[in-house]
Amino acid sequence: MAVAEVATALRGQSRRRGRVRAPEIVAPAAILAVVVAACFLGPLVLPIAEPVGGNVLESYLPAFSPGHLLGTDPNGNDILSRVLHGGQSSLVVALAVNLIGLLVGGTLGALSGFVGGKTDTVIMRLLDVLIAFPSLVLTLAVAQSLGPSRTNTILALAFFSVPAFARVSRAATLRLRELPFMAAAELCGTPAWRVLARHLAPNIAPQLVTFGLLGMGIVIVIEGALSFLGLGIPAPAPSWGNMIALGQQSLSATPMLVVWPSAALFLTVLTFNVLGENLRSRWSRQ
């Protein structure tokens, strides 16, 4: 009877967590959906030029020029096309970094918190060593040594996302491990892997998802900084960071070269942060 009551309570908790139709959730989620759709579907459906290979004779065209809604850059490339393709690069890098952190770090943290003992000690001490390094400085060093590319940027940033996700996962696991339904599952003879997959993972997922949304914004900012310094997405491939770097060379004459990618970066990061924080606040009240 007790097991049935626990199962009913868990189903009710799952239904409550599914109620995320509040305006503070819907509004940033809708904005984020528009940004993602614009970046990935916009270049396919809009009549815009390729982001590279522009005509240098058409450089520095102003906004609303024929065929160039936002104008062109010093190389004659369409700014709108580069902003949208740059968004693709930033979102892909951020998603890949956070997925690696979620899968590797989340698994290590859950395993560490669930098993405990020497396993917990070994895993957490290894992760503490990684956290002890100054992450931004070491990221710059790794990016410099590997060379500028999208793959190397993902690897450099994922190196530090793993311990962050592991700590969140372990803390959530330690809280859940003391709850009655976990003890009930173990007393019923449920295999450890099944307890982890069926009972633990769904209940720590909200914390990991909200942390991942906040991490998306952080990774986009860091990727932009690396690209700005020439250590991220290499030119002429578009990235918000290297677009800002290119535009700042003629900032006084053509400020819009910096405004457009900066506005796109700001809006995307703000939306991820607001959505993640609102989800965290809503789930913490349930």
Rank of each mutant, 00 (worst) to 15 (best):
F114L: 11
L57H: 13
A29T: 10
A171R: 05
L267W: 05
G109K: 07
V162A: 07
T151K: 06
L174D: 05
E277Y: 10
L80G: 02
M182S: 08
L41V: 14
L214W: 02
V221Y: 01
L270D: 07
L69F: 12
G215T: 09
L267Q: 00
S112C: 05
I204D: 02
I131H: 02
V129Q: 06
R125I: 02
A225Y: 05
L138R: 00
A253Q: 14
L179R: 12
V115C: 02
S145E: 10
A205F: 15
P23D: 03
F160H: 03
A192D: 06
V259K: 01
F40A: 04
L126N: 08
A263N: 04
I123E: 08
A63I: 07
V221N: 02
I79F: 03
A158R: 01
G230I: 05
N278Q: 15
V122W: 13
T121L: 13
M182I: 15
T254E: 10
A30V: 14
G215F: 09
G18H: 10
L57W: 13
F114D: 00
V83C: 12
T151W: 09
V20M: 15
A38P: 06
Q207P: 10
G87I: 04
A49E: 11
W193V: 10
P51E: 10
T72F: 05
R285Y: 06
L70E: 03
L270M: 14
I100S: 05
I218V: 10
V26N: 08
A183K: 13
R21H: 11
A237W: 04
S135F: 03
F272E: 01
T254Y: 15
V3T: 14
D128N: 09
L208H: 09
V195P: 00
A38F: 09
V168H: 10
R194M: 14
S227D: 00
S81G: 09
L46G: 04
R167V: 12
L257R: 00
N242L: 07
G230M: 07
